[in-house]
Amino acid sequence: MIRLRHALREAGILLLVAAALGFIYTAATEKGLFARPAPSKTTPRGVAGDPTMISRDEAWALYQTGIAVFVDARHDFDFKLGHIKGAINIPLKGYDERKSALSGVSMDRVIVAYCDGAECNSSIELSVKLMKDGHANVRIFFGGWSEWKAANLPAEQ
């Protein structure tokens, strides 16, 4: 009991010091909580800076028009188990080695990035990388493979 009381007192002090250091440091360096809003980005092509999220219906509509390239951000293993028909696999982990798969795709072609489904962040991270590399029309199909599969849309292994 004495140990616990002792520990709680020490913990309180540590917590206070950590909070003070944290707030002072982030305020001084203007990071995190104190970060200044980033200046609005304008890409050379005048396209909005952030990739757009699209629903399954929108992804399906794009798929049917054939104007979009679908890029799968998941690992090779998941890709081989099944993916949107015709999609190119560029795992987020191996982006730099694998991005050449898009070398034949023009920079303003619509690219739809997706990964596992509702809670996967790789498609977002991938689309940010794609936009950095100059692709102007990147969309994120956030529902991803799980929504696509659930709707029985064209797939292949």
């Binding site: 950590a18 909070a19 250091l21 944290g22 707030f23």
Partner: peptide, 11 residues
């Protein structure tokens, strides 16, 4: 994110 990393460092 402001406080926890410093708490980890101190601890």
């Amino acid at each position: 994110a402001t406080v926890l990393p410093w708490l980890e460092l101190l601890c």
